[in-house]
Design a protein around this nucleic acid. Sequence first.
DNA 1: AGATAACCGAGACGGTACGTCATGTCTTGGA
DNA 2: TCCAAGACATGACGTACCGTCTCGGTTATCT
Lengths: 210, 210, 210, 210
Amino acid sequence: MQCRSRSARTGRPRSAAADAAILAATRTALVELGWSKLTLGYVATLAGVAKTTLYRRWAGKNELVVDAVAELFDELELPDRGSLAADIEGVVLQFAAILDRPEAKTALMAVVAESTRDEPLRERIRTSIVDRQKRLVLEGRARAQARGELPPESDPADADRTAALIFDVVAGAVVHRTLVSAEPADEEWVRSFTRILLVGLTGAAADAAQ
Amino acid sequence: MQCRSRSARTGRPRSAAADAAILAATRTALVELGWSKLTLGYVATLAGVAKTTLYRRWAGKNELVVDAVAELFDELELPDRGSLAADIEGVVLQFAAILDRPEAKTALMAVVAESTRDEPLRERIRTSIVDRQKRLVLEGRARAQARGELPPESDPADADRTAALIFDVVAGAVVHRTLVSAEPADEEWVRSFTRILLVGLTGAAADAAQ
Amino acid sequence: MQCRSRSARTGRPRSAAADAAILAATRTALVELGWSKLTLGYVATLAGVAKTTLYRRWAGKNELVVDAVAELFDELELPDRGSLAADIEGVVLQFAAILDRPEAKTALMAVVAESTRDEPLRERIRTSIVDRQKRLVLEGRARAQARGELPPESDPADADRTAALIFDVVAGAVVHRTLVSAEPADEEWVRSFTRILLVGLTGAAADAAQ
Amino acid sequence: MQCRSRSARTGRPRSAAADAAILAATRTALVELGWSKLTLGYVATLAGVAKTTLYRRWAGKNELVVDAVAELFDELELPDRGSLAADIEGVVLQFAAILDRPEAKTALMAVVAESTRDEPLRERIRTSIVDRQKRLVLEGRARAQARGELPPESDPADADRTAALIFDVVAGAVVHRTLVSAEPADEEWVRSFTRILLVGLTGAAADAAQ
DNA sequence: AGATAACCGAGACGGTACGTCATGTCTTGGA
DNA sequence: TCCAAGACATGACGTACCGTCTCGGTTATCT
């Protein structure tokens, strides 16, 4: 998350409480102000911390917000719900629930937009947020294959490509539904979406197997 | 785009040339600086126009950028390529090509992020950009139904829901692939995506028809 | 006051009412806003006149304000009150009454300040305002000499110098009392001032005559 | 000159050098541009200081200019020249010399004009500038009374009124001569003025004593 | 125990951009 | 030719944040 240049041993150590306070304050400020009106000075005030302390640990607004939002994605998990359909529905609902929070809504697209011109930021988003979701796709597929709902992959490269595609479809659809269409990704929508995705996946896999 | 409250007849009329110059300058500035570092002052300078002229016509950066980017979507169209698969591939490739431009890349997600806290802005995005794409989904489906590739819809409300779902899936997937995964939505990817979508659509429609 | 460049014959003649309205509006605006916050746009609005009309007749704020304030000094006159002392007291009270008006208070020193860097403006002030007062000094002295209260001047150049000196003392004292000390130039003050001035004048004249 | 509300101990202290640089830059800018065209931004640039630093210490242009000009009056003093006449001539010449500087010329009347609508500003002018001169009147009178040139005052209230009157006459005459009449307050003029004033003062005092 | 070193709060600093306002000019349609 | 209306280029306004810096003071670990 952040590192000090040298000699982490001597001198007063950084306050651990400050980190948590700052990230929480960032989320609060995101809810209050949105991304574009959020200022580091206000975050510092909210956290009861000097601006200097903030800059000592994060390079800027983008990095701070990524870290603050990334914590929201820690709760994502994939309990075995017995079928691929149920697993997909479950994780999509979880993801939609996170996106429904105002701090995530306003921040996620903003940092993605920033990342189009900032490679390190994109990398940070990838490791902090995106990969956390991608993992679920891989787990879900492995589980479905173990259940026999999906055939095992023959070509590993093709398997990676397919996983990436599924991920883009799932995450993209939920994000678009939530932020652009601004409609709730509720159970009915998720069920419709899952049906199409599932039919598409199994059907396309069957085609490919022929 | 903009309107004057009253008495459109009196006084010096607004320069039509200025509008075009400003929108073009906005796109140039987006390429040069990205969304977050774009300055209305700089846009005005680029356009050879006073800052006040800019503020007289747009409420702020967001509105201006939406209008500037919206023009990019004017080129979207849906020529009959003979099959539903070809139609989908064609329009997805067009959409991906627009998203690949740096001015669209940096601006689109940014204004969507802003729109999460600004209802009028969301409405503006919807009418200027989103509906332009949504129309293609409706046309494509109608054409596919005429060809017999898709069954006619019985329930109009259900038809609307399905169209919205398809739209979220298509647009969301392309956007996510391009901006979040930061991988090109090239022909191979589009073909894979189209296959899954198509199988899903026809299969799900067949399920529903049973 | 203002002049048109050429051919005062052809085309629509300038509205005479507009001039009066503008000057009155200027005084109103001076009272409302003071000199530094007065804007020509606001004067135009108050006068029910277009800004263009205003600029067609005056070169700028300073010139307009001088003309607007100069009208206040039209009322200055020197009725024969029977003695030099009474004449002086009378004119000083008149002058103090004008300076007590808020539009004169705020405007007079402001244009004088501007005139320190604007020779044409100083000339305009002199002819429009200052000479109007100076004349009274000359009239008063002539009348006092006719009454025998003051000896006739032998050297005309010396007479001019003395008149200028008296004028500076009288006008300066009243202005300073009113604007800098911000105390009223009431009858008591005027009487004290007049006594000193009168003693000084007659005594100094007697000294010089020795 | 300026003060901080509380806790003068914490945080980075204000730069003392900045104050001096800003006031000097203000005087330079006054000479270059005059009062009405003086810009706080330009003063900041001249002083090599950020605009915010300037606004942190002064409320606006008026307050800044008063402080900048007030420093000019620090040099006023009243050495004993042996007689009341010589003392008056000496101080009037000093005062006239200050008023002859372009920065004082353009600024003094301007801030007085502003002060007609701004009570705190008037107070600031009084304490920073006017009282500095007024003191000289009191000293001069005390010295003249010690010398026996003027009778001692019996009524203190009357003494105050007379001092104020003398001050208005002296300062007003010099200012009017210099700024309105725009003639130099040279030795000849000062001698004539002093004679009238002196005769007036001693004569009127003698009248009152009768 | 004392020295050392990095931390902390507060807040001033030089900058940059903001969005607004006034200036003085211009361009309409109409009198 | 004048007028009211209002758009125009220009440039200053006073404010807000940025990211850096300097203070006095506070913990820690290392001598």
